[in-house]
Amino acid sequence: MYEVRFHGRGGQGAVMAAQSLADAAFIEGNYAVAFPYFGAERRGAPVLAFARVDANKIYRKTQIYKPDYVIVLDDKLIDLINVAEGLSKDGMAILNSTKKPEEIQLENEVRTATVDATTIALDVLGVPITNSVMLGAFAKATGLVKIESIEKGIMDIFGARIGERIAKKNAKAARTAYERTAIGTCKGGRIFKKEKKWLPTYKELPLGLATRAMKTDAGLVGPGSFVENKTGSWRTFKPIIDKEKCIECLFCWFYCPEGCISRTSNGLKIDYDYCKGCGICANECPANAIEMVR
C-alpha cells in the first residue's frame, strides 16, 4: 500500500488530482480511494486531499497522517505549513517549485522532486491551476504509475467534470511536467513553530458572548481579528499602481473585496500582505494605472 497526501489551495484542484491518481492506479489493476479533507475552505485557502492505493482491498478509512508521498500544488505552501509532517523516511516530497530539489529545505532530509508547475500550467492551460501538472511529476518521480495511465485518469476525471477539450490540455500538461521533473534529495532541519494557544477558555469570556475583542497567545480573536490572517500568499498576480497615471478616482479603493487598498497622503497604497490578486482593481481602473504582474 502507498498513501499520498495532496497539499493545495482551494480552486487548484487537489481533490480532482487525488481522484485522477486513484483512477490511474485503478486502471493498472489496483484498488484505490481518493477523498478530500472537509472544512470551511474557500478558493485560495490551504486544503488537503488524499489518495490511497493497494494491490488488495483497502479497509483503512482514516485521513492520511503518515503519508508515503506528499504532493504540494502551490509553491508558497512549503514556507507556511510543514508539508512533510509525518512523511515516511523512505517517502518522497513532490513539490511545485522553480528551485532544484537540493535547494529546498524541509523538516527532514527526504527524496524530493521539483517541477515548475505554475509556469507549465500557465503555458499549457493558460491558468495557474497545477493539479494535472503535479500528477505528471508524480509519475516521473515515483514510477508507481505509468504516465499513460495518469493521462487516462485525467481524461476520465477531468473529462467528466469539465469536458474533453480541457481534459486533453490537462493530460498534455501532465506529460510536459513528466519530461521536466528534477529528482534529488532536499535538505532537512527546517523547524516550524508550534501552534500557540488560539482559543480563549470559557472563563475568559463574558456571559452570553462567544468572543469579545481580546488577545490570546496566538494573537487577536473576536471582532475585527481577521487581520491576523494574512491572505497575501494566495496571490499569483500582483497589482502595481503607476503613480504617474493614477487619477485618484478611488474606484479600486471602493471595489477591492479585501479592503487592502488605502488612501494615504502619498496616493493610494496596496497592502500586499492581504491582496489576493483578484485583479478587479486593474480591470476597473479607468486610467489603466494598475498592472497585474506575476
Binding site: R43, G224, V227, N229, W234, R235, Y255, C256, P257, G277
Partner: peptide
C-alpha cells in the same frame, strides 16, 4: 473598514465588496 481585511473569501468576491 469595519469589515476587515484578512477574511477568507474567494479572490474577487462580490459579497465581500458588498459587506465592506
Amino acid at each position: 473598514n469595519l469589515f476587515t481585511k484578512g477574511h477568507t473569501a474567494c479572490p474577487g468576491c462580490g459579497g465581500a465588496i458588498m459587506a465592506k
